[in-house]
């Protein structure tokens, strides 16, 4: 997997057994859930909640894996680790990074949902 790609669409579609409609359903679900998860991540970081931060980042990481978004996945994973270690100072920029990457993925997914799959 190209770790620099925003979205590995072919791999994501493969995970959905090539079912485009189902992928759209998953992607729509992801848009909702990941926003909530990102908010939870931010809130946990602000109240310096180790467990909360790790759990929220873990949850987000799981759904990101389904979408096959490698860059977002890597920084979410890093954030989970920092949460586990209670390194809030280091976590802060990573959290910002996660939010940026997530926004990119959202854009890419909305494109696919609205415009269909690139052939």
């Amino acid at each position: 997997m190209d770790k620099t790609a925003v979205l590995d669409l072919s791999e994501a579609l493969n995970r959905a057994d090539g079912d485009q409609d189902f992928f759209v359903t998953l992607a729509t679900l992801f848009l909702q859930e990941s926003s909530k998860d990102a908010a939870a991540v931010r809130a946990a970081l602000e109240r310096q909640d180790r467990t909360g931060l790790a759990a929220a980042a873990h949850k987000l990481k799981g759904s990101v894996m389904e979408m096959c978004a490698p860059r977002l996945f890597e920084c979410t994973k890093r954030l989970e680790e920092l949460g586990q270690q209670g390194k809030f100072a280091e976590a802060s920029p990573v959290c910002a990074d996660v939010e940026t990457r997530l926004a990119e993925v959202h854009v890419a997914l909305r494109d696919v949902i609205a415009g269909g799959f690139p052939s």
Binding site: R15, A16, D19, L29, G62, S63, M65, E66, M67
Partner: peptide, 16 residues
């Protein structure tokens, strides 16, 4: 599974 995207995806794969 608590995470809805993973759960929905895995459930769909198993159903298929």
């Amino acid at each position: 599974e608590d995470e809805p995207v993973t759960r929905t995806s895995m459930a769909a794969r198993l159903t298929r």
